[in-house]
């Protein structure tokens, strides 16, 4: 565990350094271009340009810039947006909750459903159910999430008109009650949530199913059955309890997938999360925002890694020894 922690700290440092070095080292000198009147990315607004110069401090030595950057990061000062001339941290603060809501609920939902149907499919190995679920999962996990999202959008938003097409809430709505407010948020969340859940579900289902199949062939499962334990106990107490270990181990990469998926989905559904933010920023090459989002997302994925590792250690006594 300690080793992993060191690895994550090192990765964190690598992320920070990469984030600092990339804009400065890459060919074409993208930062200088912002301040170069000849360049296509020249920032015209003098106030913004001044803020940029202060944030990046390009006239100082590289080491001083690095120190200033690190101080900035640890004091939650991520610079200013070129597009909006606002502190990046404020932008992230207003967009992040939406993304957390979307990815969090999609992850939870996909995990829950994946575990349940994965277990059952493995238990009924090679039945009709199993076969069709595997087929659907393989196809679902291969379709790009923005494409499935688009299909849902068309079917439920346009054809059936059941759900709102975009946004995180109805603009300028005045809610009569808390319930109405929740319903509005819910109906806006539903389509992105279903899309993201489905795109995550395929992988999760296959993972649980296959590790469960492996566990079912273990000797201890035979012994458990020979002991006269009822089917439910065999399936959950011994089968699933062991099959869940690789699933938990993979939680971190699931979180990575989920965030990637969310970036697309938010763009597609105009959901006001950081995906939306990064998309808007990319169009105008708003580097400080892109960098800030990269940092925050990296931090989220790293925390997910840490959490998954910690959970693994809690659940698997064999790992605790090391």
């Amino acid at each position: 565990m300690k080793q992993r922690l060191i690895l994550y700290l090192m990765t964190l440092w690598a992320v920070l350094t990469l984030n600092f070095l990339l804009p400065r080292m890459l060919p074409g000198d993208p930062l200088q271009a912002l301040l170069d009147p000849q360049s296509s990315t020249y920032v015209f607004d003098p106030a913004t340009r001044a803020a940029l110069e202060a944030d990046y401090g390009l006239d100082r030595s590289l080491l001083e810039q690095y120190a200033g950057y690190l101080v900035g990061v640890f004091t939650a000062d991520l610079g200013h947006s070129i597009r909006l001339n606002q502190p990046v941290i404020d932008l992230i603060r207003s967009h992040l909750p939406w993304t957390l809501l979307l990815t969090g609920s999609a992850l939870a939902l996909a995990s829950l459903v994946g575990i349940v149907i994965g277990t059952e499919a493995a238990w009924r190995h090679r039945s009709m159910w199993d076969t069709s679920l595997v087929t659907v999962s393989v196809i679902l996990s291969n379709a790009p999430v923005f494409f499935t999202g688009m299909v849902f959008l068309i079917v439920f938003g346009v054809w059936l008109g059941w759900l709102p097409l975009s946004g995180g809430r109805t603009p300028f709505a005045d809610y009569s009650s808390l319930l109405a407010e929740m319903r509005d948020y819910g109906s806006h969340l539903l389509l992105p949530l279903v899309t993201l859940t489905l795109s995550l579900l395929g992988g999760k289902f296959l993972l649980v199913r296959n590790s469960m199949l492996g566990v079912l062939q273990e000797d201890f499962m035979l012994v458990a059955r020979a002991k006269g334990l009822p089917a439910g106990q065999l399936k959950r107490r011994h089968g699933l309890r062991n099959a869940i270990l690789p699933f938990v181990h993979h939680l971190a990469s699931h979180a990575g997938f989920a965030i990637t998926g969310a970036l697309f989905i938010e763009t597609l559904f105009a959901y006001p999360g950081i995906g939306q933010l990064i998309f808007d920023s990319v169009v105008v090459r708003d580097y400080p925002v892109i960098q800030g989002v990269f940092l925050v997302v990296s931090l989220m994925v790293l925390s997910a890694n840490l959490l998954a590792d910690w959970l693994s250690y809690q659940l698997d006594p064999r790992l605790r020894e090391a």
């Binding site: 990765t11 690598a14 990319v282």
Partner: peptide, 18 residues
């Protein structure tokens, strides 16, 4: 470390820059 990095934001950052 590379596996622990979020790939898409990383690519977005690099591509936006270069």
């Amino acid at each position: 470390m590379l596996l622990a990095l979020p790939r898409l934001p990383m690519l977005i950052l690099v591509n936006a820059l270069i």
